[in-house]
Design a protein around this nucleic acid. Structure first.
Length: 802
RNA sequence: GCGGGCGUGGCGGAAUUGGCAGACGCGCCAGACUUAGGAUCUGGUGUCCCCGACGUGCAGGUUCAAGUCCUGUCGCCCGCACCA
C-alpha cells in the first residue's frame, strides 16, 4: 500500500486552511446556498461519532453545491453556555471561560481532522460578549414589546442542579441535564410569552419543507384546539359569580351532570367560608401536591376527587343544579382549570361518574352508555333545541350561537404549549439585562450599555435557596436605575441554555457586525437557511424557540422573512455495535478520534454515510468499516491503471448513469446508495481493466464530497494544480445513461422463467419474437393456447396460457 | 390510551414506487500469491427434497404480476401522555 492516509489528510487540510477554500464569498450576485447544522455544545468529552454523522450529511451536500457553482455558507460555531461546563468549573475549580476555550479548541481540532468544509472564518461562540450582546438585545426588544413577564408559580425545580426548568427540560418528571427527579416549587420566574406566537408557529409550518414527522411533532407540541368558553353560574356565591370552563364539545352541554375543577383552582380560596367541607378539600389538595409527576401518570386509571359541599353550579343549557368536584384529572395549566363533565360522552368523566354515582345522561345516540362512554357521532337526543341534529359540527355551531346570544359563552382556542420559563439560577449564562428599581419597577438595561457582562468570580456554587451565584457579587447587583437615577438592584438570573441557539444562524450571515446582529444586506442575501439538518431531539424545543424568536424579529423589522428554515431534515442515531444506544455506562461508545487514527477521516466519513438510511438508526460495525477502507484503496489503485484520454466505450454509459445517480442521491440524502453506486462503478472499471485519465478525473470529482482528502490527492497526482473541491461538478448526458438494448423478464402465468435482451423501446411483436428464441420460454408456450399477452415496455413480457 | 415509524439472507441494508427480490458492503466457503496472514487477488454464497419448488413478521384479499395496494393480526422502536 503506497497510500499514507495520515500524511495525505494532514497535507490537504493544511492546503484548505491556507487557501481559505471553503469560506463563503461576499459576492451577493452569486446564487447562494445556506446549509446549517446544529452547532455543538463543546463538552469536555470531545466529539462523538453522532456529531460526525450529524455534520456529514450537509457536508456532502455543501461540497456538491459548491462544485455546482453555488456560493455556499456552511458555518460552524459553539453553543457554549450551560451547566456541564459550570459543573466542571466547580469540580475542578477552573473558570468556565478557561474550560470553554479549551473545549472549543479541542472540538475545532477534531472537526478539522475530519476535513469538514466549514467556513472557519465565521465561527461563533455564544459565550463571547460580542455575541451575547445581541442575545441580550433581542431579549430587551421582547421586554419592550411586552413579551417578557415575571410570575410566581409552581415551577419545575431540579434539586440537584438547583435550577428552575422549563416544561420542555423536565419531560417525564426528570431533569433533562442530570436525570434526577424534579420537584414542584413556588418561585417568581421569568417567562417569554411564546403562546402569543402559537398560531404563527403553527400556520407557518404550511410554507416550509420539513420532514412530515417533524411538522407533526411541532403541531402536537403547539397543540391547538378549537372550542368554546362557557360560564356556569354558582349557587350560594356572590351575584353573577360563575365558573368558567373550556370545552371542545359544547354540543353535549345538555348532558352535563357535574363539574370538575383543578385542586388549585382559586374559586376554593375565594369561597372558603361557604364551603362546608373545606377540611376535606384541603386534605385532598395536599395529597395531590405530594404526588410526583411519576405517580400522577401511573395513576391515570384510578380517578380520585372530592365533592365540594355548600356551593353548586347551574347548567346554563337546561338550568339544572349540578355538583362540583375537585379532582387532579383536571389541570390548572390547561384551559381554565375547570371543566363541564359529560359522563355519557367522555371516557374520563364516565369513569369519574361511575365511581361517584353521578347521573349519566345520553345526548348523542349511537352508543350504549350503560357500558361505556360514547365518543362517536350520532343524532342529538335529550337536548331541547339540538334534538334531531345528526352531526357534531352542526350541533356545535348551534350551541355556540346560543351561548353567544345569551352572553354566557363564546368561541375559544386553547394550546397545549405553555409560556416559556426563561431563566436559570446559574453563573454560566447570559445575564438577563433588567434592573429592579424600587420606584420604577422593572427597567431594561439601556441598549448602549449592552453587553451586560458576566462579572468575574471565583465561586460558582449556586445558593442553597436556589438563587443565582451572581447574587453574591455586590458590584454586579448594586446599580443605579437608568430611569430615575436612584439606587437599584440588577436581576441576577441568567438565560437558559436555549437562548444563544435561538438566533445563531442569523449571526453566521455577518458574524463580526458591531452595529447590528447582522446587516440587512447580509440577511437579505443569505436568509432563509436553505437546508437545516439536526437531531430529532431538537425539533420541538430548539426549533420552536428559534422559530418564535425569528418570527418576533420579523415582526419588529429586523429580519426579512418570517420563517428561518426553508427545509429541515434529521439524521438517525449511530447505535453501539451491540445495537443499543451508545452510552458510557454500557461501554459501547465509539470514539471518532480512534477511527480517524486507525483508518483516516475519509474512511470514517464514507462508512458513516454508507451504514444505511441517513435518517434511520444503525449500529456501528467494526468489520463493515473495512469494506469502506478497501473501497478507497481500490480507488487509489486506479492511478496505476489510468492511461489515455477520452471515454472508454465499455464504461461510458456506466459513468453517465453514475453521475446521474450520485447527483440525485446527494440531493435526496440517499448517501448510502450514492456510495454503493461509486463502488459498483469501481467494480465495472476493474472488470473492464481499463480507465482513461479523463474518466478517472470524473470519478475523483464524484468521490470528492465523500472522501475529499483522497480526491485532492489523486487530483493533484493527475497533474491538476487547482483544488478538486473547487472544481466543477460533472454533468451527465441523459442520452448516454440509457442503453440501446434492455433485458426483459419472460414470464409465464406471472412467474419469471427466463430473460432476453431486446432493443430498447421495442414493440410487443418484436419482444414476443425475441421471447420465442428462449428455448425454455418457447417450450412452456408451444402446444398451449395463448389466452393473453401482457407486455410492459422495457420491463416484462408475461404470457397467460392454458 | 393517542400519534408516528418499522418488520426483507448469517449481519448492515437495496429495490426506478405494482414489473427479474436480495444492489452495495460485511461475514462465510473455495482457490491463488505467500515463511506467515486479522494483507491482497480470483470465483462462489437466500432456503430446500437443487433440471424443480419455496421465499420480504403472520393470515387472508385485489391483480396477468404484490416487499410495494386493501383487510385483519402479532412484534419492535420513537414521541405525547387525564389537553377537557
Amino acid at each position: 500500500m503506497s497510500y499514507n492516509f495520515k500524511a495525505v489528510e494532514e497535507r490537504w487540510q493544511k492546503v484548505w486552511d491556507e487557501k481559505h477554500a471553503f469560506e463563503a464569498k461576499e459576492d451577493h450576485t452569486l446564487p447562494k446556498f445556506y446549509a446549517l447544522v446544529e452547532f455543538p455544545y463543546p463538552s469536555g468529552a470531545g466529539m462523538h461519532v453522532g456529531h460526525i454523522k450529524a455534520y456529514s450529511g450537509l457536508e456532502v451536500v455543501s461540497r456538491k453545491k459548491r462544485m455546482q457553482g453555488y456560493n455556499v455558507l456552511f458555518p460552524i460555531g459553539f453553543d457554549a453556555f450551560g451547566l456541564p461546563t459550570e459543573n466542571s468549573a466547580i469540580k475542578y475549580n477552573t473558570h468556565p471561560r478557561v474550560l470553554t476555550d479549551r473545549n472549543i479548541e479541542k472540538f475545532t481540532s477534531q472537526l478539522k481532522k475530519v476535513g469538514f468544509s466549514f467556513d472557519w472564518n465565521r465561527v461563533i461562540d455564544t459565550t463571547d460578549e460580542n455575541y451575547y450582546k445581541w442575545t441580550q438585545w433581542i431579549f430587551r426588544k421582547m421586554f419592550d414589546k411586552g413579551l417578557v413577564f415575571r410570575e410566581k408559580t409552581l415551577v419545575n425545580y431540579c434539586p440537584h442542579c438547583k435550577v428552575v426548568l422549563s416544561n420542555e427540560d423536565s419531560q417525564g418528571g426528570k431533569c433533562d441535564i442530570c436525570h434526577s427527579d424534579i420537584i414542584q416549587k413556588s418561585k417568581e420566574v421569568w417567562y417569554l410569552r411564546i403562546t402569543e406566537y402559537a398560531d404563527k408557529l403553527l400556520f407557518g409550518l404550511d410554507k416550509v419543507d420539513y420532514l412530515p414527522n417533524i411538522k407533526l411533532q411541532q403541531e402536537n407540541w403547539i397543540g391547538r384546539s378549537e372550542g368554546a368558553f362557557a360560564n356556569f353560574k354558582l349557587t350560594n356565591c356572590d351575584e353573577n359569580e360563575s365558573l368558567r370552563i373550556y370545552t371542545t364539545r359544547c354540543d353535549t352541554m345538555f348532558g352535563v351532570t357535574f363539574m370538575v375543577i383543578a385542586p388549585e383552582h382559586p374559586i376554593i380560596e375565594k369561597y372558603r367560608d361557604r364551603i362546608t367541607n373545606i377540611a376535606d378539600l384541603d386534605a385532598y389538595k395536599e395529597a395531590c401536591a405530594k404526588k410526583t409527576e411519576f405517580e400522577r401518570t401511573q395513576l391515570v386509571k384510578d380517578k380520585t376527587g372530592v365533592r365540594i359541599e355548600g356551593i353548586s353550579a347551574i347548567n346554563p343549557a337546561n338550568g339544572k343544579e349540578i355538583p362540583i368536584y375537585i379532582s387532579d384529572y383536571v389541570m390548572m395549566g390547561y384551559g381554565t382549570g375547570a371543566i363541564m363533565a359529560v359522563p355519557a360522552h367522555d371516557e374520563r368523566d364516565y369513569e369519574f361518574a361511575k365511581k361517584f354515582g353521578i347521573d349519566i345522561i345520553e345526548v348523542i345516540s349511537g352508543g350504549n352508555i350503560e357500558e361505556a362512554a360514547y365518543t362517536g357521532d350520532g343524532e342529538m337526543v335529550n337536548s331541547d333545541f339540538l334534538n334531531g341534529i345528526k352531526t357534531k359540527k352542526e350541533a356545535i355551531a348551534k350551541m355556540l350561537a346560543y351561548l353567544t346570544e345569551k352572553g354566557i359563552g363564546e368561541k375559544g382556542v386553547q394550546y397545549k404549549m405553555k409560556d416559556w420559563a426563561f431563566n436559570r439560577q446559574r453563573y454560566w449564562g447570559e445575564p438577563i439585562p433588567i434592573i429592579h428599581c424600587p420606584h420604577c419597577g422593572m427597567v431594561g438595561v439601556p441598549y448602549e450599555e449592552l453587553p451586560l457582562r458576566l462579572p468575574d468570580m471565583e465561586n460558582f456554587e449556586p445558593g442553597e435557596g436556589g438563587e443565582s451565584p451572581l447574587a453574591k457579587v455586590e458590584s454586579f447587583v448594586n446599580c443605579t436605575c437608568p430611569k430615575c437615577g436612584g439606587a437599584a438592584k440588577r436581576e441576577t438570573d441568567t438565560m437558559p441554555q436555549w437562548a444563544g441557539s435561538s438566533w445563531y444562524f442569523l449571526r453566521y450571515c455577518d458574524p463580526n457586525n458591531t452595529e447590528a446582529l447582522a446587516s440587512k444586506e447580509a440577511l437579505d442575501y443569505w436568509m432563509p437557511v436553505d437546508w437545516y439538518n439536526g437531531g430529532m431531539e431538537h425539533v420541538t424545543r430548539h426549533m420552536i424557540y428559534s422559530r418564535f424568536w425569528h418570527h418576533f424579529l420579523y415582526d419588529i423589522g429586523v429580519v426579512p422573512h418570517d420563517e428561518p428554515y426553508a427545509k429541515r431534515t434529521a439524521q438517525g442515531l449511530i447505535l453501539g455495535p451491540d445495537g443499543e444506544k451508545m452510552s458510557k455506562s454500557k461501554g459501547n461508545v465509539v470514539d471518532p478520534n480512534d477511527v480517524v487514527e486507525e483508518y483516516g477521516a475519509d474512511v470514517l466519513r464514507v462508512y458513516i454515510l454508507f451504514m444505511g438510511d441517513y435518517g434511520a438508526a444503525a449500529p456501528w460495525s467494526p468489520s463493515s468499516i473495512k469494506g469502506c477502507k478497501r473501497f478507497l484503496e481500490r480507488v487509489e489503485g486506479l492511478m496505476y491503471m489510468a492511461k489515455g484520454n477520452g471515454a472508454t466505450p465499455k464504461l461510458e454509459s456506466a459513468f453517465h448513469k453514475a453521475i446521474k445517480k450520485v447527483t440525485e442521491d446527494i440531493d435526496t440524502m440517499k448517501f448510502n446508495t450514492a456510495i454503493a453506486t461509486l463502488m459498483s462503478l469501481l467494480n465495472d472499471i476493474y472488470d473492464a481493466k481499463t480507465i482513461t485519465i479523463d474518466e478517472l478525473k470524473l470519478f475523483v470529482k464524484l468521490l470528492c464530497p465523500f472522501a475529499p482528502h483522497l480526491a485532492e490527492e489523486l487530483w493533484s497526482r493527475l497533474g491538476e494544480t487547482e483544488l478538486v473541491s473547487l472544481s466543477s461538478w460533472p454533468v451527465y448526458d441523459e442520452a448516454k445513461t440509457v442503453d440501446d438494448t434492455v433485458v426483459i423478464a419472460l414470464q409465464v402465468l406471472g412467474k419469471t422463467k427466463d430473460t432476453v435482451e431486446v432493443p430498447k423501446d421495442c414493440d410487443e411483436d418484436t419482444a414476443f419474437a425475441a421471447a420465442m428464441t428462449s428455448e425454455k420460454f418457447a417450450s412452456l408456450v408451444n402446444g398451449k393456447t395463448i389466452v393473453k399477452k401482457i407486455f410492459v415496455k422495457n420491463k416484462i413480457f408475461n404470457i397467460i396460457v392454458k
